[in-house]
């Protein structure tokens, strides 16, 4: 298996682990904090809001405005 396939599988595994863990956190009845909880906590204070919006805006700008189609 070539290194790029390994790295791509690693990325997809990480994303899947994040999605699964988010679901597990929601099902845990509050024993574990989900990403949603972390976002809600950051949102309660203005500096946290600015950071959240800045990170989110950067992701959107990078992914949807500056993508390069392979090939």
């Amino acid at each position: 298996m070539s290194p790029d396939v390994v790295a791509t599988v690693a990325w997809l595994t990480l994303l899947a682990m994040g999605a699964i863990w988010e679901v597990v956190c929601h099902l845990s009845g509050g024993r574990w904090s989900s990403l949603t909880d972390i976002g809600a906590r950051l949102w309660t204070r203005p500096p946290g809001r600015i950071v959240l919006i800045a990170v989110w805006a950067f992701v959107g700008w990078h992914v949807f405005a500056r993508y390069t189609l392979p090939g």
């Binding site: 509050g30 024993r31 574990w32 904090s33 909880d37 972390i38 809600a40 906590r41 309660t44 204070r45």
Partner: peptide, 8 residues
């Protein structure tokens, strides 16, 4: 009160 983070 912001929600407490549990085991992040």
């Amino acid at each position: 009160e912001p929600p407490h983070l549990r085991r992040p």
